[in-house]
Amino acid sequence: MRNKPWAIDYLESNAHIVDVNNTYSKKIKTFFDKDQPIHIEVGTGMGIFITTLAQQNPEINYVGIEIDKNVMIRVTEKVLELGLSNVRLLLLDANTLMDYFNENEVDKVYLNFSDPWPKVRHAKRRLTHSRFLSSYKQLLKKDSIVEFKTDNRGLFEFSLISMNAFGMTFENLNLDVHDDEPKENIRTEYEEKFSQRGHKIYWIQASF
């Protein structure tokens, strides 16, 4: 996405929706109008997934985490357009999740079409690597779910091995989501694109 020099100024002008400067670190609940269960999406894409979920589930507070300020503009625009009071956005590096959240504060984590980082030397950057799983385990409440979708077979296989080695319990595995698509599935913009190219979509739901 093309760089927008005005991106940070725009995001800061919408500080009621976007936390650019870690203002709500360790106090994310105060960022919302209501005290409700918290679900987070690590890597929002253009925001279709999180805004659709928020519309469907007004009784849940959703936190979208994105490191790219230019992408975050698109998500912010969607939240504003839909007038969603149960979505808040963090311009945040996923490596710093536990610096931001408290332990046992989150009820669910979503990982949708994360960067596969295909080179072996970059494995630690994958969002299902054990170092990230360790963070999710700390911030999630007991028996909470990590939900993961990808079109990348290599990342899917890596994630299965990583989650299994970490001792997670697989609640659901789907090797071709669109073959018999669950009605609760929300197609992200990347999911639509990859599916149209003939890619299978893989889905994992696992708990600690």
Rank of each mutant, 00 (worst) to 15 (best):
R2P: 00
D9G: 06
V18G: 06
V20W: 11
N21F: 00
N22I: 00
Y24D: 08
K26A: 07
K29I: 03
F31W: 13
D35S: 14
I38H: 01
H39E: 14
V42Q: 01
G43P: 01
G45L: 06
I50V: 11
T52P: 05
L53H: 10
Q55I: 06
Q56P: 00
N57T: 05
N57H: 15
P58N: 03
N61R: 09
Y62H: 08
Y62I: 01
V63H: 04
I67H: 05
K69V: 02
V75A: 01
T76L: 15
T76S: 11
K78F: 04
L84H: 08
S85Y: 05
N86C: 12
V87M: 04
D93N: 15
T96E: 10
L97S: 03
D99W: 02
N104W: 02
Y110N: 03
L111Y: 01
N112Q: 08
F113N: 01
S114W: 01
P116C: 02
P118M: 08
P118A: 04
R121G: 07
A123I: 03
T128V: 02
S130R: 13
F132Y: 12
S134N: 11
K141V: 10
K141G: 03
K142H: 13
S144H: 04
I145V: 11
L155G: 02
E157V: 09
I161W: 02
S162D: 07
M163I: 03
F166L: 06
F166A: 13
M168H: 02
F170T: 13
N174R: 09
L175E: 13
V177W: 05
V177P: 04
D179L: 11
E181N: 09
E184S: 10
E184T: 14
R187V: 08
R187C: 13
T188A: 07
T188H: 06
E189I: 12
E191G: 14
E191K: 02
E192N: 10
K193M: 10
R197F: 12
K200P: 03
I201E: 02
Y202Q: 03
I204F: 03
I204G: 01
S207L: 00
F208L: 11
